[in-house]
Design a protein around this nucleic acid. Structure first.
Lengths: 146, 146
DNA sequence: ATCTTTGCAAAATGTTTGCATTGGT
DNA sequence: ACCAATGCAAACATTTTGCAAAGAT
């Protein structure tokens, strides 16, 4: 991933009439590293560790803006805290496995699943369907063993 | 739906060593009506309207207990509020369409999707996969028109 | 110079917990 | 009689908002 998405995001924000700023830039660069589904708190902490501290409100505001422009996807895995990850312009994306014991979140991909959902979305007529999320709950290898 | 699930839930709770109580009973009976994906606030309000007011804490506690026994399924559609619905003993279930404009949540079913996910779950080896959620985001007919 | 973006603190929201009381067994 | 279930209020966690200061154009 990386550089591409960051530039893409900055361009789209500029088009949408936003000015630039250090806080948003820092959040975008972190998301551009391609980590899977980070929470706002994780983003804030990580930036602080990197010596690029950013106000909590700016983290949330940036995420909201990015979500509105579909530059990130927001994911709720049932822990009450939202997670965010960069949404690639290609539309190429993955889904998530969530460990209900330890909370670990891991990505997976499956073309057949995408195809099935695409067919399904086309059949639905009561909604104009856009994005989709699939979450598989379970127990990760570590928790099964432990 | 209805009566069956209510009895099933009461039985499983008794097996798990819970005593009976009016608050939990009221929540279970409401869930047993089969409404799709209600929030705790909706449950509380609905019970109050029905003259069966129940403390907020009891609503949450009941939902937590039911979730632990897999008698309800919990769903997060990205609005920051959890939703719950009765989980049928047959395992038969549906997924959800969410209107990102007005927040409406609507159920849908698709056997092909279930089959695809079952195949997929069997392939995953880093997790022992249990439940799954599929959320299709979009705009409902009303919002598309308005 | 103007109008955004930022950070802080306060508020709003959703959920959980402590504790005294009620109620089931 | 015992101990769980309940309701209330307080605590808690997450997210949002108001506002003054800093920054971008």
């Amino acid at each position: 991933m990386s550089g591409e998405w960051i530039e893409h995001a900055e361009t789209r924000l500029a088009e949408a009439g936003f000015r630039r700023g250090g806080a948003r830039r820092a959040v975008i660069e972190l998301l551009g590293e391609g980590h899977c589904a980070m929470t706002a708190a994780e983003i804030e902490e990580r930036l602080r560790e990197d010596g690029r501290s950013v106000g909590r409100a700016s983290v949330y505001r940036t995420l909201e803006q990015l979500d509105e422009l579909r530059l990130v996807s927001r994911l709720d895995v049932g822990t009450g805290t939202a997670r965010y990850e960069a949404a690639l312009p290609s539309g190429h994306h993955h889904h998530h496995l969530v460990c209900d014991s330890c909370g670990k979140v891991e990505p997976f991909e499956d073309p057949e699943l995408e195809a099935t959902i695409a067919r399904l979305a086309a059949k639905v007529d009561s909604f104009r369907v856009g994005e989709h999320d699939v979450v598989l709950h379970g127990e990760c290898a570590g928790c099964v063993a432990g």
